[in-house]
């Protein structure tokens, strides 16, 4: 299967681990990712907050490039995904092109794409290293799901596809009620004090659920839960050890991809001690 792929700006830098793990696991799932030609920044929260015209123009350009490419568009960043869906709703649907009806290009959130029933089924058969004993809470964040009139999601309050994926990989997803609560990532630089409150609450609820790590599908969530963990621990006067893993890293782990260690080494909260304890990393250690 070949799809268009829109990585977004942060996958070229702070979320390079996400980008690397996606590039590595896609071929294992017989998925070919064709990076969208000449894509631009979606403008993120900044554009829709203070310049709605620019916000729409930036995302519309990406969507039009995708329509020209003619393949479904898969997006790993929740914010970019959301902005593309906003553009999709705002732009007229192309009906005909030179007398031929163009199939509509569907915009997909990467997690949703990879948890379609056929992927989950084939994935379960490819697991060589089940992630037994990995107690995790799935953290979906906001914008891949909300608002549903933009994202077209059905399970926007209580999604379950990441849990289904974890079960297919042999891990133990735990139930908790904060899976779509906001971590405030957009305010991380301007108001770190707000992040301290929001993210500490997520740490505490995850621990209360019995989790040893978070699994995420949004690189803004990853950065916002991973980067300030030391600071939040210091402020709270206690220790936290809650690695924040991408679901694609877990796929790589369970399918024994040889480069997993390289991605994990980029995290600030090093997940390797936890994974070694579970015996999930022994082949690389």
């Amino acid at each position: 299967m070949k799809v268009s792929y829109y990585p977004g700006c942060s996958l070229e830098e702070t979320a390079i681990d996400y980008a690397e793990s996606i590039a590595a696991v896609a071929p294992l799932l017989d998925l070919e990712l064709a990076e969208l030609e000449d894509w631009n920044c979606c403008g993120a929260s900044a554009a829709h907050s203070i310049n709605h015209t620019l916000a729409l123009d930036l995302s519309a350009r990406n969507l039009l490039i995708a329509r020209q490419a003619g393949l479904d568009l898969v997006v790993p960043c929740a914010l970019c995904f959301n902005r593309l869906k906003v553009a999709e709703k705002a732009l007229p649907v192309p009906q005909e092109n030179k007398g031929k009806t163009q199939p509509p290009v569907k915009v997909w959130d990467l997690l949703d794409y990879l948890t379609q029933p056929e992927f989950l089924k084939s994935l379960a058969g490819k697991v060589v290293r089940p992630l037994a004993g990995l107690k995790a809470v799935c953290y979906y964040g906001c914008l891949a799901a909300r608002p549903p009139k933009v994202t077209d999601k059905e399970a926007y309050e209580n999604p379950g596809n990441m849990e289904a994926l974890l079960r297919a990989l042999g891990a133990e997803p735990l139930d908790w009620s904060y899976k779509t609560d906001c971590c405030g990532a957009g305010l991380a630089l301007a108001r770190p004090d707000i992040i301290d409150t929001l993210v500490k609450r997520l740490y505490d609820r995850a621990l209360a659920a019995g989790a040893e790590c978070f699994v995420v599908s949004c690189q803004m969530c990853q950065a916002n839960l991973d980067l300030p963990q030391k600071r939040i621990a210091k402020k709270a006067g206690r220790d936290y050890y809650l690695p924040v893993l991408y679901f694609t890293e877990l796929i790589g782990l369970a399918l024994a991809h040889p480069e997993v260690d390289k991605w994990l080494a980029r995290h600030l909260v090093d997940p390797r001690p936890l994974l070694k304890k579970l015996g999930a990393l022994s082949a690389f250690a």
Partner: peptide, 11 residues
């Protein structure tokens, strides 16, 4: 300004 655009209210 401190609204994080999480879209819970709109939803």
């Amino acid at each position: 300004w401190v609204c994080s655009s999480c879209e819970t209210c709109t939803t």
